Simulated assay, not measured.
Amino acid sequence: MLLVSAPIVGAEEKAVLSEVIDSEWLTMGDRVRAFEEAFATMHGAEDAVAVSSCTAALHLILQALGVTCGDEVLVPSLTFVATANAVRYVGADPVFVDIESMDVPLISLAEAEARCTPRTKAVILVHFAGYLPDREAWRAFARRRGLLLIEDAAHAPGLKEAGTFGDAAAFSFYGNKNMTTAEGGAVLTRDGAVREAIRQARAHGMTSTTHQRLNSRTPHYDVTMLGFNYRMDELRAAIGLVQLKQLQNWNGIRLGLTLIYRRLMALDCPSVQIPFSGSSLSACHIMPVLLPSFVNRQDVIDHLRANGIQTTIHYPPVHLLSLYRQLYPNLHLPQTEAFAERELTLPLHPRISTSMLEMIVARLAEVVHSRANTGAVA
Rank of each mutant, 00 (worst) to 15 (best):
T41F: 08
I360S: 09
L241A: 02
H369A: 15
H220M: 15
E19M: 14
G163T: 02
K121P: 07
A137C: 13
E341S: 13
R263D: 05
T180E: 10
L60N: 01
L78H: 02
T164N: 07
F80Y: 03
L188D: 04
S5H: 11
T189R: 00
W25M: 14
T209E: 12
A186T: 00
A237S: 06
S23A: 13
G44I: 10
M102C: 11
I286M: 09
S216Q: 11
G29L: 07
G175F: 07
L148A: 00
L132F: 00
G158A: 12
V272M: 09
A86V: 07
Q273E: 14
A142G: 09
D103G: 04
D152K: 03
Y324I: 10
E46N: 09
Y328T: 11
K121Y: 01
I309E: 13
T83L: 15
S370K: 08
A57Y: 03
I313R: 08
T209L: 15
A11K: 11
W25C: 12
R351C: 13
I274Q: 02
I301L: 12
D103M: 06
R31H: 09
L2H: 05
S101V: 08
N373Q: 15
H204V: 09
N249K: 13
A129I: 06
A193R: 03
N176D: 15
Y89H: 12
I286D: 08
V95Q: 05
E100C: 12
W25G: 07
L346T: 00
F228D: 09
R305S: 14
S280I: 03
S370C: 13
D299F: 01
S101G: 11
D191P: 10
W25P: 07
S77Q: 08
M1C: 11
L344A: 08
V272C: 12
A50F: 10
A56R: 03
P270I: 03
L26D: 01
R262Y: 08
A84F: 02
S108R: 06
A82R: 03
V81K: 09
L348P: 07
E12D: 09
A84E: 04
V126E: 10
R199Y: 12
H332K: 14
E341R: 15
Y261G: 05
A156I: 04
E13A: 11
N296E: 15
M232Y: 00
R119Y: 00
L348G: 06
I107C: 12
L247S: 06
E111V: 04
L65M: 08
F339K: 11
V16S: 02
A48R: 05
R254V: 03
P219Y: 03
G278V: 01
C116M: 15
V97Q: 01
L241I: 03
P270H: 02
I313M: 11
P133S: 14
S5G: 09
F141V: 13
A45N: 05
S282T: 05
R371I: 02
H220F: 14
V32W: 04
